[in-house]
Amino acid sequence: MTVPSDRTAIRLGTRASALARTQSELVADAVRRHTGRDVELVEVTTEGDTSGAALTSFGGAGVFVGALRDALLDGRVDLAVHSLKDLPTAPAPGLTIAAIPLREDPRDVVVARDGLTLGELPAGSTVGTGSPRRAAQLHALGLGLEVVGIRGNVGTRLGKVGAPAEEGGVDAVFLARAGLARLGRLDAITEVMDPLQMLPAPGQGALAVECRTDHPLVQLLAPLDDARTRAAVEAERAVLAVLEAGCSAPVGALAEVVEGDDGDELWVRAIVLTLDGGLSVRQSISGPTGDAHGVGTRLAELMLDDGAAELMAIPMTSPSRKQLHA
C-alpha cells in the first residue's frame, strides 16, 4: 500500500449524485481545515446507482457502499464518505469509521403538491417512497393514502410531485430532511414528520467518514468526530444489528442525548412493523452515553421479547391496525 505524503492530495471517494457530492465536499472542507492538506473528490459508481430496481430487490444493506469500500481497500481512494444509514451494521475487515461528524436533523419530511400536509391530502392520494419503513409507518397512520414505489436522486423525486400520473407523478414524496438541508432545498418541505408518527432510519442524517484501518488518516480525522452523534448512531445501529434487520426492513430508531439525573444519557426509541403497518412493536429505553452499543442492544432484546422478529417475518397482516406495545 502506498501512503500519500503530506504534499499529496487526499483522494476522497464519493458517489456521483448531487447529494453525495455535496456531503463529500462538506467533509473535504473539514479535512482541509484540520489537516492543511488538499483533498480531491474521486467519483465511484455503486450498484445502487446503476439499477432502477427497487432497493429491496438487492437484498438490503450495502447497495450504495460496496464499490466505495472496494476503492478504499485497493488504494484508489484514501477515504470515503457514506450516508451512515446506508452502511451495513457488520464491521468491514480492514476498514474503520474514522469520524462521524455532527449530525443533521434526522427526521423525515413530506414534500406535497400545493403545500399540503399528509393530513390535508385527500384519501387515495399517492405518496412516493422506496422505503418499506416509511411505507409501513404511513399505513399505520390510517390516512387512506396510497403508497407508490419511487426511486431516483433527490431532484428526480422532487420532480415527481404534482406531475401527471402517466408520467410517474405523485401527490407527495417522503425524503430525509438532512439531504434537503445539505442541498439548500428546505423550502420544498411542506411537513416535518414528528418522530412519534414516523421514526427515522437508524443513522439517518449522519455521515460516516471511512478509511483503511492502517491509514494515518485514522488519527488525522479524529477532530471531525462528534461524540454525541457517534453515541446516538451506535445505539441505533445496535438495535438494527440485534434485530438482524437490513436497511430494507420496516425498522425505525432514534437516539438522542438528553440531560439525566447524573449528567448526559441516551434516550433511544425504536419501532418494528409489519410491511402493511398493521402490527407494530414500539419500545424505548435510556442509559449512559458511554454504553451506547449496550443501550441499543438491550432495547432490541426487549423488542425481540415482544415479538419483533415474528412481525418482520409477516409479509402482510389483516387490514385492521393494532399496536402490540406502547
Rank of each mutant, 00 (worst) to 15 (best):
I10S: 01
R11T: 07
R11W: 02
G13D: 03
A16Q: 10
V44A: 03
F58S: 15
G66W: 05
L72H: 04
L79T: 09
D86Y: 00
T89S: 15
A92R: 11
A99M: 07
P101K: 13
L102A: 15
R107G: 02
V109Q: 11
V111G: 04
A112G: 15
R113P: 00
G115Q: 13
T117C: 06
P122I: 01
S125F: 05
T126E: 09
G130T: 06
R134D: 12
A136D: 04
Q137D: 09
G149W: 03
G152A: 04
D171H: 15
A178E: 11
A178L: 09
L180D: 08
L180A: 12
A181H: 15
R185V: 00
L186E: 14
A188D: 13
E191H: 11
A201G: 10
R212L: 01
Q219G: 11
A222I: 06
P223V: 02
R228M: 04
A231I: 10
A232Y: 00
V233P: 01
A235P: 02
A238H: 02
A238P: 04
E244C: 09
A245G: 10
G252Q: 05
G252P: 02
V257F: 02
V258I: 13
D261T: 09
D262I: 00
D262F: 06
D264V: 04
R269T: 07
I271V: 15
L273E: 12
D276S: 06
G278S: 14
G278A: 14
Q283L: 08
Q283H: 14
A292S: 15
G294T: 07
G296A: 07
L302P: 00
G307P: 05
L311Q: 02
M312Y: 01
A313R: 14
P315T: 01
P315E: 03
Q323S: 11
Q323T: 06
L324A: 09
